[in-house]
C-alpha cells in the first residue's frame, strides 16, 4: 500500500500557476540567458523525462531525446507568448519530439528490442522502496511483464496510461499535452486500459497472478 501511495503522489500540476521565479527565468531565457534556461530545465526535467519515458519506456535514448526537447524549447522560447502555461507548451513539444523520434526510428515495440537487462531491473529496483515480504525476483518479473504489455500498446495509449498512472498527470493535463479534448482522452484512456487487460489475459491466461496482488491496492 505504501508503495502504491508513494507512487501515486501527484506531481506538480501543469495547470498550477507559474512560479514567480519561473516567469522571471522565462523572460531572461527569451533574451538568451542560458543559466536562466538551465533553471527552467531543472524545474521541468522530471516531467519531461516522464513524458519521453511514457512513450519510449526504457529506450537508451530517453535522456538524449529529453535534451533535444529542451534544446528545441530554447530555440523557440522567444515565440512563447504566455497564452498557455509554460509547462503545457513544453510538454506538447516533448510529446511531438518523441513521436518524431519514433517515426524516424519506425520502432514501436522498443522495449522488446531493448528489453531490460537483469542489471537494469536491479538498478531500477534499488530506486524503488522495498516492500517487505515480496521477493525481489517476483517483483522484477512482474515489472518486466507489465513493461512488455505497455510496449504492445500504441504509443498514444501507452503515453496516456503512463502519464496518468505512473507520473500522476490529471486528464486535463494529458489533454493539454496531447492537444485533445478531455472527453476524448477519457474514452481513449478507458479503451487503452481495457486493451492492456485483454493483452494480459491473452498472454498469461488470467490476470490472477499480478492483479491479485495489485487489486488489493485499488
Amino acid at each position: 500500500m505504501a508503495v502504491a501511495q508513494a507512487r501515486m503522489a501527484p506531481a506538480r500540476g501543469l495547470a498550477s500557476g507559474p512560479r514567480a521565479d519561473e516567469s522571471d527565468c522565462i523572460r531572461r531565457a527569451q533574451q538568451g540567458d542560458v543559466p536562466a534556461f538551465e533553471e527552467l530545465v531543472r524545474i521541468h526535467q522530471k516531467r519531461v523525462l516522464g513524458v519521453v519515458a511514457g512513450i519510449l519506456r526504457w529506450s537508451e535514448d530517453i535522456e538524449d531525446i529529453a535534451q533535444q526537447v529542451f534544446l528545441k524549447v530554447y530555440l523557440a522560447i522567444r515565440r512563447f507568448d504566455g497564452r498557455s502555461s509554460f509547462g503545457t507548451w513544453l510538454y506538447k513539444i516533448a510529446v511531438n519530439e518523441t513521436y518524431d523520434y519514433l517515426r524516424k526510428k519506425k520502432a514501436r515495440k522498443l522495449v522488446y528490442e531493448s528489453d531490460l537487462s537483469e542489471e537494469q531491473v536491479e538498478h531500477l529496483d534499488q530506486n524503488l522502496p522495498e516492500e517487505p515480504g515480496r521477493g525481489a525476483l517476483e517483483r522484477a518479473e512482474s515489472r518486466q511483464a507489465v513493461e512488455r504489455l505497455l510496449a504492445e500498446l500504441a504509443p498514444e495509449e501507452r503515453l496516456m496510461i503512463v502519464l496518468k498512472e505512473v507520473e500522476g498527470y490529471s486528464v486535463q493535463e494529458i489533454s493539454q499535452a496531447m492537444k485533445m479534448n478531455p472527453n476524448t482522452v477519457k474514452v481513449r484512456m478507458f479503451r487503452a486500459r481495457r486493451r492492456l487487460s485483454d493483452l494480459y489475459r491473452r498472454r498469461y491466461g488470467s490476470s490472477r497472478h499480478l492483479a491479485a496482488s495489485a487489486s488489493g491496492r485499488l
Binding site: 508503495v3 502504491a4 512482474s142 507489465v146 498512472e165 505512473v166 499480478l210 495489485a214
Partner: peptide, 9 residues
C-alpha cells in the same frame, strides 16, 4: 497493474 508494476523514471 500499471500503478503497481510500471517503472517510473
Amino acid at each position: 497493474l500499471v500503478r503497481e508494476f510500471a517503472i517510473p523514471v
